[in-house]
């Protein structure tokens, strides 16, 4: 299995503090992966590096069949290359309707002039309706995103990610603020998405991770502490000490 994303000995420090320390991480083109680790382990920083928000001090980040370096690309270029990201706290455009949020995320020409002359079509309208249906927001499609509940915003953001049709999906703590039923829906959705693409999920909630039934990577102090099935890593004494035993 060739890797879609290859993170190779990456380090980054903030004011001398090593947030990511010689981290290496691979993920295949069709794979579901959970990343766990205590607070401050560097999980969000890892996503920042992959998505171009933070430039590492050392290391390589390679992408796709032709191993392009993501470090030379800016956030927008990386997103267009097929990396989608869901933030820790829901970030939707609160001032705009659910359908406007989804329409913006739809895969289409992203240049200013391409956008200027873009016109909604029957296909695009149907796609937006379909996405809204998928994340359970059909009823709310004309409402402003700001009027949605916290959980609904999470879903809207997931809908926007789907609209982007990314090849790699980075999801930071999706279960936060969701009800039990919503969590179950989310795990089902993430597992289904991972049937056709790579999905990396950062999550604190162990039950949530268990339901994902996937390979788990444990981060600690900016590097990989253990990797394998959830049962495998939870038996690892190092992991128990730094994370589970607390």
């Amino acid at each position: 299995m060739s890797a879609l994303l290859e993170v190779d000995s990456v380090s980054v420090s903030f004011d001398g503090f090593k947030a990511i320390n010689n981290l290496s991480f691979n993920i295949g083109a069709v794979e579901l992966r959970a990343v766990i680790g205590p607070n401050g382990a560097g999980k969000t920083t890892f996503m920042d590096i992959v998505t171009g928000k933070t430039k590492p001090d050392a290391g390589r980040v390679l992408w796709g069949e032709d191993s392009r370096s993501l470090l030379k690309m800016n956030e927008a270029q990386i997103a267009r290359a097929g990396v989608g990201r869901k933030f820790q706290r829901p970030t939707v455009f609160e001032d705009q309707s659910v359908s406007a949020n989804l329409t913006m995320a739809l895969k289409a020409n992203r240049g200013p002039f391409g956008v200027l002359f873009w016109r909604p079509s029957a296909t695009s309208a149907a796609r937006v309706a379909e996405l809204a249906e998928e994340v359970g927001l059909s009823e709310q499609i004309d409402r402003k995103a700001g009027e949605l509940s916290h959980g609904q915003k999470q879903w809207l953001e997931i809908g926007m990610l789907l609209a982007q049709e990314p090849r790699l999906l980075l999801v930071d703590e999706p279960a936060a603020g969701m009800t039990l039923a919503e969590r179950e829906q989310t795990t089902t959705l993430l597992r289904r998405l991972a049937e056709t693409r790579a999905v990396v999920v950062v999550e604190h909630d162990m039950d949530f991770v268990r339901r994902l039934e996937c390979k788990v990577t444990v981060l600690h102090q900016g590097s990989v502490l253990a990797e394998g099935s959830l049962d495998h890593v939870t038996r690892n004494p190092d992991v128990i000490e730094v994370y589970l035993g607390r």
Partner: peptide, 19 residues
Amino acid sequence: SVIRAIRDDETRVRFLGYP
């Protein structure tokens, strides 16, 4: 839509792939 989104959260707009 995009420019108002830039006004409200330009970082997020970048992650949607807009220059």
